[in-house]
Design a protein around this nucleic acid. Structure first.
Lengths: 342, 342
DNA sequence: GTCAATGATTCAAACGTTTTAACAAAGTAA
DNA sequence: TTACTTTGTTAAAACGTTTGAATCATTGAC
């Protein structure tokens, strides 16, 4: 490797001071146009590489933003992350991604690393059980945080997520409007705020329509295809003979449809199924899945903007911001057959 | 935010010099045990945060490693990235992930950013059309690079990937052994070395079995579910009436199976389909997908180790390292029906 | 012909670490 | 006692940038 090229290398080559070179490269109006030109040419010629660590040491802005979620490979986060990436790219910030796999410890490690690197801010989907102190660690050290997907008790920072209760209400109402009355809810847990909200949305819609809320129709479970697939047995053997299912997410729904098909029934005709998230996969499933678009891209976009705003000292948007979900009606739901298979 | 705590804050609080504090925190044997204890306690008490930028300015080791692939959300990279994460975590390196979406420009931007941040090294799955100069940019500035998944012409760096030609040969031979003769190859492109290798493996197996190599049976395309789904039309309408398909990867295969199912045929009985990669999803697809395990976890692990070795100045492992793939036989392939649906 | 204003450039002090060489104090050997 | 080690600590210079204040020419106004 050749000798490192730095500001002073350029300065010496041109008989100028590093101050001038520094200003010129950042297009300061303080330096004469002709000088700026010469400097920029020289910089390219010598293959100068800006040293951000040195700069940030002086300016205390690193241009680094951290993003930590449960699992970046999880398709649920795909759109959120993509939206964040687009927003941050636009303002030339580098972003560092990390998984916490719902380990509070791994999450704290990440926050500490980010602080060490002088991160300007952090966007996080907090791990289950995140203590308020971990968030304050970031804030107290001058690294503002934005929350997505989940809230943290005692923390009142800008928080963005889909309106889960409203979303499952949409799905349930859709099924009710098709004539279904015995509607199950499949997958998910009551241990997260998301879980409780989604169930509440379903329950409210049922009650509003004057339908019975049967606890046997609630089949909780992991949020995976596998789990949906396995739930099919339970669902089909249910003595209440449900004709429709509101699923926790698209993965569960697709798994359930596979299970139903395996049993010789046709999803969308014999049994109506709704998903949640509107993953890319939903549209190409067989049958194409009726689902609820969760507003992930909006969540990502808003979260990134809120952070950038905060960094620029402008408006605060503390508190919860709910994105309104929308129905995506496809072929996995259909009218109740009066004298149908079941 | 309280006043920033730095080495000198601790030093003053204890009537010591920053030198001693610095050494103590890094467990140098130069400082007395009792002093070290006092220093460490004070550091915790004051909430000291190590400033890596300042340190790296002095040491020129940042502890940052860059990883850039086509699309980190693509499940193909999931296992590779997980393996890299595990390896790098172990040696306390922070890693910065980025997508290049096969844009050479975006990739170069990332390399430049990484250089600016003082990255210690980079692991990359190079974008299609990556010029050798972009790789040299990294190397020439003291940032060693390791390649995964793809090679770059004229570049002889440690490169890790699956043996693609061998893998598609395995898949093709499997179909041939089931009696199929009209076997299509679906998805992918000839613009990458991977693409050419996979096709070569298929072509060689066909020729070795004395089968005709029809160009109409090559249906290239993007490497997504969507693309596989769309290819089904083309595949089913093909005048050569192929009975089996070697797909570029699992995503294409699953998309194709969905498309085949949509047309009323049964994948695994009417049409045999093989995937490639053995994603988690392959095992729970309907029908379960016969595929080729690509050795991704090995690729990630070896690549990370090779980089760490290089950073520690130890052995060089320049050149290509091929991981041997293995067949995973499931239900999406079956014997040719002599008087089958087609 | 002095003074002030303007424009371009530079000085020098930071930013928070690490590290080499030097130093002081105390112990050891003669 | 002196000379030499050993042990623990520190002074000070570096790393490469930014920035407020200072400098130095020019030019214009009176």
């Amino acid at each position: 490797m050749a000798q490192k090229v730095k500001l002073s290398t350029i300065a010496e080559a041109l008989g100028l001071s590093t101050a001038t070179v520094s200003l010129a490269l950042r297009d300061s109006p303080l330096v004469a146009d002709i000088t700026r030109e010469r400097i920029k040419e020289k910089a390219v010629e010598l293959g100068y590489i800006y040293n951000r660590r040195a700069a940030s040491l002086r300016t205390s802005r690193s241009g680094i933003i951290g993003v930590v979620v449960h699992d970046i490979m999880n398709p649920f986060y795909a759109e959120i992350l993509k939206a964040i990436e687009t927003e941050l790219d636009r303002s030339r910030q580098t972003f560092i991604l990390s998984n916490h796999y719902d380990s509070v410890e791994k999450q704290r490690n990440f926050i500490e690393t980010l602080l060490q690197l002088g991160g300007d801010g952090v966007i996080m989907s907090p791990a289950i059980g995140t203590p308020a102190s971990d968030i304050r660690l970031a804030e107290d050290n001058g690294m503002p945080a934005i929350l997505i997907a989940r809230s943290v008790p005692e923390i009142d920072l800008p928080t963005f997520r889909g309106d889960d209760a409203y979303g499952t209400t949409l799905a349930t109402n859709h099924l009710i409007s098709l004539g279904h009355t015995r509607i199950a809810m499949i997958g998910g847990t009551d241990h997260t705020s998301t879980g409780r909200d989604r169930y509440a949305g379903y329950a409210n819609a049922m009650k509003a329509a004057g339908l019975e809320l049967e606890s046997a129709l609630r089949i909780p479970g992991p949020r995976t295809k596998q789990s949906g697939f396995e739930a099919a047995v339970n669902f089909l053997a249910n003595p209440l003979k449900p004709t429709a299912a509101v699923c926790w997410n698209d993965l569960v729904a697709i798994g359930l449809m596979n299970g139903i098909a395996r049993a010789g029934l046709v999803p969308g005709r014999d049994i109506s199924v709704t998903g949640y998230d509107d993953l890319e996969e939903a549209a190409i499933a067989t049958p194409a899945l009726t689902t609820v678009w969760n507003g992930q891209s909006e969540v990502g976009r808003f979260a990134a903007r809120a952070l950038l705003d905060k960094l620029n000292g402008s408006s605060e948007a503390d508190g919860l911001h709910l994105i309104k979900p929308e129905m995506r009606i496809r072929q996995s739901t259909g009218p109740l057959h009066p004298g149908g298979t079941r």
